[in-house]
Each structure stands twice: as structure tokens, then as C-alpha cells.
Amino acid sequence: MKSLLCATFVVVGVWLVLAPWVSSAYLTTLQLIIFMYICLASSWNLISGYVGYVSFGHVVFFGVGAYVGGIAMAHGTAWPLAVLFAGLGAALLAVVIGYPCLRLRGAYFAIAMLAVNELVRILVLAFEGITKGATGLYLRPIENNRIMYYAMAVVAAAVVLTARSLNRSKFGLRLMAIREDEVAAEVMGIDTTRLKVYAFILSAFFPGLAGALFARYQSFIDPESSFAVLTTIQMIIMTLFGGKGTVLGPVLGAVVLSIFAELVWVRFPFLHQSIFGLLIVTIVLLMPNGVLGLLRQRGIIPLRKIL
């Protein structure tokens, strides 16, 4: 069993590395998008799954990253530097929102994030001089897009490793203590506000990077797609499906649901979003810990194993 699992991992790993050279452009793009969703869902999981503060506007960091990176690249910055700026820009926004809002109960934070995304989207639309408004921002296409595939893979891996390190570090344990009982955590001497802000910065930084990489990959961004509420919904549903507060849950959710969306749901645009809504309701009511939680409950995955 174990060797079979190892063999599968090796095969998948080799495939993922070689794909841009041997497989079709369609499949490579699909894989890049799956990496992107792994990054986005795992980032949402950092603040909402581990700390328990629901962010309903998380796509704002992706969009800000796309625009900071896009504008930097349009002015001639080399892409790796522009991507770094994008991550820092998103992190800065997280500090500005996080410090006041994370002092408060989760509900206020959730409402604030609902509004922040709309606010930023409208501002991006309004400042046409810099952002080109609704027309969107075009970047000069690059010849070799393979590098973007690998870059997105690295970012996705970085988020997953960050989440993994949370399970083992004092920082991560403190975050989970906040989720379980914030008052108790505070009584035990945890500086809750500061740690929440740190977690929020982490959860904003990676989507910022992903946004800029995706902007570079597409060579085009516009406010409607960069700040799409549907992206936030997907982050949430992927994480919930796999299992919130676990390392592998968002990865599982991103892979399964991206492939499913590609095969089935694109044909039913409105209906599939209604099903997303029902799926969220069902998961919250019937399997609050997602697929991984269900497997653990059934004894298929040992209880003690950290996922």
C-alpha cells in the first residue's frame, strides 16, 4: 500500500515537471490553473481554516497582486521583481485591513472583507489613468510561458509547505488555539491580535504572487475577472470540500473541483453556481470537516495522522 502510494507520487511528480514539454497547451494551462487554485484555496485556509476568521473577499489580494504586478510589468519591471512587489502590495493591504478589523470578533472581519473587495474593484475601475479602467491592462506577451507554469507550481508548493509548518510550529498551534477559544488563548498569554494579523499577511501574500503570475501568463487583466466574487467562492468551496484547517484539504479540493468544473460544470453556468451554494450548505451541515474529516471519521485515515 505504502509503496504503491510512493510510486503514484513519483509518477505524478515526474509528469508535473515534464508536462510543459511533452503535453498539450490545454492540459498545461489546466494544470497551471489547478496550481493557482491550490495556492488560493490554501491561502484562504490559512486565515479562515486555521484561525477561524472567514474572509469573504479574499480574491481582493489576487486582484491587487494582478494589478500591482501588471502595472509594474507594464512600466518595464522584470517579472520576478514585479511578482515580488505584487505579493508585498497584497501583504500591505492585509496589514491595513487586518490591524483594525482583526481586533474585533470574526463577524466584523467577515463583513469588512465583503466590502473591501467591492471597494477596491470600484477604485481600480475609477482610476483609469493608472489601471486603464474597464478596458483592462494589456502586457506585452512573452515568448516562453513555461517558466510561468513552474513559477505557479513553486508558489503553490510554498503555500502548502507554509500550512504544513503551521501544524508543527508554536505559531500554528497558537493560531489554532485562537480558533478554538479566543478568550482562553488570550488568557494563556497569546498576543491574539498580532498573531491573527501575521496569519492574515501570510494568507494575502501568496494570492498576491499568484495574481501577478496569472497576469503575466495571460498578458491581460481587467477588474471584472481579477476581482471576481466567484473566485472567492471557489477558494471557500475547495477548502471546505477537502477539509478546512488541514494541509491537504485545500489541495484535494482544488484538484478535484477544478477537474470537475472543467469536465462538467462549464456547460451549466448558472446552475453550477447554484450547486456551489447548495454544496456549501450541505458541507457545513453534514460534513463540516470535509472529505478528509469524513475519511478520518470512518477510520480510513488514522486519527493521529496530521494532514
Binding site: V54, L271, Q273, G277
Partner: peptide
């Protein structure tokens, strides 16, 4: 009586369902 996270996510799911059902 569940943690705040649950009710927020649940009503969010209801909202998505209603919007798209109405659109449909």
C-alpha cells in the same frame, strides 16, 4: 450554537444558491 464560522458560511451558501436560482 456552532462557531461563528459555520453560520457565516451557511448563510453565504444560501445567498449564492438564491442569487443563481433567481438568475436561472
Amino acid at each position: 450554537d456552532a462557531p461563528e464560522l459555520s453560520s457565516l458560511l451557511l448563510t453565504f451558501g444560501i445567498a449564492i444558491f438564491l442569487t443563481n436560482a433567481i438568475r436561472y
